[in-house]
């Protein structure tokens, strides 16, 4: 009984810690032909009481993944590296086409719609948060 209680306490603590940062709707664009580059998108929410910061992302599916932002200046599209994304308590940030994205480079194999790809997000305080991203086609 004591062991069970201890287990429950530990388990609920772990669940509570994991819930501080909530990543949802993670997806990657399916490969277009043999192009070795794609992008990943998701929503990240800080449900904790303290600010946190998304520092980096990695995936076993590709050689490199970097936070990026597409910006438009006088009709010219540019991409800028984004060093980190700040998340105040209660704040959520959405990465979506045409803006903030994860640039995924040097894919090890083409990504096919319907596949699941693991992403690891590293936060300053929450540490590593793992998510399964869905590969989505254009349809």
């Amino acid at each position: 009984m004591k062991a069970l209680l201890l287990f429950l306490v530990l388990f609920s603590n772990a669940a509570f810690a994991a819930d501080t940062i909530v990543v949802s709707d993670a997806w990657l664009r399916a490969s277009l032909g043999k192009v070795p580059t794609t992008a990943a998108y998701f929503k990240v929410e800080n449900r904790g009481a303290a600010p946190d910061k998304l520092l980096s992302i990695s995936t076993t599916a590709a050689g490199m993944a970097h936070l990026h932002e597409s910006v438009e200046t006088n009709g010219v599209a540019q991409m800028r590296p984004v060093p980190s994304i700040e998340l105040k308590p209660g704040q959520s940030v959405v990465l979506a086409p045409g803006g903030l994205h994860v640039m995924v480079m040097n894919l090890k194999a083409p990504l096919i719609a319907g596949e699941k790809v693991p992403l690891v997000l590293r936060f300053e305080k929450a540490g590593e948060v793992k998510v399964e991203a869905e590969v989505r086609g254009l349809k």
């Binding site: 277009l32 192009v35 580059t37 992008a39 990026h68 597409s70 086409p97 045409g98 994205h101 254009l138």
Partner: peptide
């Protein structure tokens, strides 16, 4: 360009 990960595929998907 095809290695453009965000703006180009988004634009071409809209064109399609």
């Amino acid at each position: 360009f095809t290695r453009c990960p965000d703006v180009c595929p988004t634009t071409m998907a809209k064109a399609a």
